[in-house]
């Protein structure tokens, strides 16, 4: 029993991330509304950001800004005192990427709405089928 709890305590952050990821993926696959799909995509990307950030966590460490003040010289910094900065850097990039993707996705959705007057995928498909039968 104690083993179980130890495992859960040491991994639950990753499991939460995977749960979020699956929620996003489910929305992307199953939902009919294009905006909901885009929201699912965003949840999916955000879960990966959480994954990276929680990876860089260290117990008993502080944020990755080195202690400094004027007149402080030749100080040796210990890696164990600061959490891992690299995942934060990478995720800054990933956040920007996800914002950029969201912008382009929304503008495509606007275009789709202009063209078909709806954002429900089945209605759009019905309209496409109708148009192809006509021509």
């Amino acid at each position: 029993m104690d083993d179980m709890i130890a495992i859960i305590l040491s991994k639950y952050n990753y499991w939460t991330v995977i749960t979020l990821m699956m929620i996003g993926l489910y929305a992307m696959i199953v939902k009919n509304n294009l905006i909901k799909k885009i929201i699912g995509m965003n949840i999916f990307q955000t879960s990966i950001i959480l994954f990276y950030v929680s990876m860089g966590m260290k117990k008993d460490a502080t944020i990755p800004i080195l202690e400094h003040h004027p007149g402080m010289q030749e100080h040796v910094y210990h890696a164990a005192d600061y959490i891992n900065p690299l995942p934060h850097v990478l995720m800054l990039t990933a956040i920007v990427v996800s914002v950029a993707t969201l912008g382009v996705a929304l503008s495509l959705a606007l275009k789709v709405y202009d063209q078909y007057g709806t954002l429900e995928e089945d209605e759009i498909n019905a309209k496409i089928r109708k148009a192809s039968v006509k021509s």
Partner: peptide, 24 residues
């Protein structure tokens, strides 16, 4: 085209995110 591009975007994002996760 907008609809195809949006589908491509959703699929492409899944692909890229899986790659990112793998790198993680």
């Amino acid at each position: 085209a907008p609809l195809s591009a949006l589908n491509y975007l959703l699929m492409g994002t899944i692909g890229a995110s899986f790659y990112l996760l793998g790198v993680g």
